[in-house]
Amino acid sequence: MLSIVHVSKLEKTFHVRRYHQGRWASLQNLVTRRSRLIRAVDGIDFTIEAGELVGYLGPNGAGKSTTIKMLTGLLVPSSGRLIVNGFVPWKDRRHYVARIGAVFGQRTTLWWDLPVIESFELHRHLYQIPTGRFKRNLAEFNDLLELAPFLDVPVRSLSLGQRMRADICAALLHDPELLFFDEPTIGLDVVAKERIRNFIRHINEERETTVLLTTHDIADVQRLCRRVMIIDRGKLIFDGELARLLERFGGHHRLIVDFAESYAEVAVIGAELLSYSDQRAIYRFDRRKITAPALIQAVSERYAIRDLSIEEPDIETTIRTIYEKRLL
């Protein structure tokens, strides 16, 4: 397999101006300048093989969008190596961007007052797409994304879901080898989200387009990505298969017990009691430290049990815990 993205020791630091506070602040600000160094991306390494579909996750301000900006050539790295598709993105901007596609959920690349189809036509000229290929691609995406009903409608009158579909189509008309999706499902309803996920999977599988996806919607990740990368405070804290993420961080299972009698106190060694009321207790335990049978045995030795169940950790809670507690 061929690597399409090479990133090594990538760093991006910013000088952030610090302002004086207090009564003479505005005067001091005029005279002296103080700045603080922020390491938005602090030495990350990864490669992405051609045809992969990778989820890139991390809390707000972790360095996600700085990375994407460097990968798309909008930002020059402070140090490190970055080669995408054989290009150094920021160096040869025009040739590089002709071969990638980018979709930002929060804003549109289309022309606000133009019918959708005319925006596509403009893209044909901007990207110099041969007419035959343009027509073939448009027909295919039209089928998959059901664009036909609103091709003649000005972008300003589209619903968010329609606009997103049109934007995705526009980003793909020139057959990019690599696609960046930034929050492609943000603000959409369940049906629209599903349609977009299916389409992303389709182009990844059928056209073998490499996809890098950033999202806050864990369902996107679960439905689409085998591999995820998590960035936090500028460092890559996880890079691997989604399944392994659970093993590594999602150690906490939950045991829910309904007791036959009322006990004043139901603590057991090896598990954390999360709540206890109406004869029901919820424990949290780490399977690497205590197995489920051992815990159940420990509980049942001391108390009379009417019913019990075990909950697997889910990815959403796992990732939320990573974000909230910043485990590493």
Binding site: L74, R94, L126, Y127
Partner: peptide, 14 residues
């Protein structure tokens, strides 16, 4: 500020 200039930079034209 609104990122429209980024969109322009992502297109392969001057």
């Amino acid at each position: 500020r609104h990122g429209s200039f980024d969109q322009i930079m992502l297109r392969p034209a001057h």
